[in-house]
Simulated assay, not measured.
Amino acid sequence: MIFYMGINIGAFFAPFVATGVRDWWLQKHGFSYDGSLPALAHQMLNGTLADTTQFQALANKVILNGSQVTNLQQFANDYLGVFNKGYNFAFGVAGVAMVLSLIVYVLFFKYLPSGNRVKEVEKTQKTEPEKQKNMVLIFGVAILLMALTTFVIQLIPNLKYDLGLAVGLFVAFIAIIFQMSTQEERARVISLILVFIVVIFFWMSFHQNGLTLTQFALNYTVKEVGAFTSLFFNLWSILAVISTVVGLFLVVRAQSTFKERMIGIAVTLLSAVVCYLFIYNNHLYYTSPQEFEAQASWLKIFFIDNKTKPEVFQSFNPLFIVSLTPMIMGVFSY
């Protein structure tokens, strides 16, 4: 349960982190984000953009210093270069997060309830003759199977060697764990392999869902929303919304103590005020910029623009799951 919830919490934050890193890189190079620009820039470079009016308008709009774009070809090259590099950094953040998770696991593994038992099992298994296998032979067979799989798959029309290499790595991994297992472990290893195969298709479907949702959002949703709706497209504002809901839950829950209800009331009121400030500043910025600029500096912190980002739509899926899971568990445990 905790593992499942952790996955979805991470999936909720991931799109915000990715878009944040990308937008930071764009701003660092004097650009802002617009979802329509990359496609138009590619058309410009490919020579398939018949009417450059929209592209010119968007290009002028995303230049942060307010200057006008005079060379659309050069702008398309520059914008796509920065845009793509921003996504590279966003992907790098995911890699860093995976390394951090591995470090956390290694550091805290000894605190797991089964840690001592696993160590005892490992000590026992090290004395078994069956464990004294030739590692060179094991890895040699795995590499041979990987190469063979890669070669066979790239022979199939419309399939390339990179897909074959990915499948080959999986086959090599399966070959290694199968060869290293003892006779007693074989049944469990086979069960684990079957789970791996099922999980492959599950995650294919799961991520296809996110990809499809992003493409739909990019092509068929508006790029700017109202002040209230903008709450759901910024990390800090949506966290304020979530905090409001959590506070209300503590207030109305029958099992809540008096102290928990007081905490719930405080969290609800504070979060609601923050949400109001986000909405107010958004409305003020777009209706009366001079009045917005005249505000105190600390009030300007609570500002979010009204732009939507297609990737952020993916956050709604895990948020929906995380929100419903406790309710579903409550129903079945009632």
Rank of each mutant, 00 (worst) to 15 (best):
Q154F: 12
Q154V: 01
Q154K: 15
Q154W: 13
L155Q: 10
P157N: 09
P157F: 13
P157V: 01
P157W: 09
N158L: 13
N158P: 00
L159T: 01
L159H: 05
L159G: 03
K160G: 12
K160E: 13
K160W: 04
Y161T: 04
Y161P: 00
Y161C: 07
D162G: 00
D162S: 15
D162K: 12
D162C: 04
L163C: 04
G164M: 07
G164Y: 05
L165D: 05
V167M: 11
V167I: 15
V167L: 15
G168L: 06
L169P: 00
L169N: 04
F170Q: 04
V171M: 12
V171A: 14
V171W: 10
F173G: 09
F173C: 06
I174Q: 10
I174D: 02
A175I: 00
A175S: 14
I176V: 13
I177T: 03
F178V: 03
F178Y: 15
Q179F: 09
Q179Y: 07
Q179G: 06
Q179S: 13
Q179P: 00
M180K: 13
S181E: 01
S181R: 02
S181T: 01
T182D: 10
T182V: 02
Q183S: 11
Q183N: 14
Q183L: 11
E184V: 02
E184L: 12
E184F: 10
E185Q: 14
E185W: 01
R186D: 03
R186K: 15
R186T: 06
R186P: 01
R188A: 15
R188K: 13
R188I: 02
V189Y: 05
V189R: 08
V189N: 09
V189G: 07
I190P: 01
I190S: 10
I190R: 11
I190C: 06
S191P: 00
S191Y: 03
S191C: 02
L192I: 00
L192P: 00
I193D: 07
I193T: 06
I193E: 05
I193W: 05
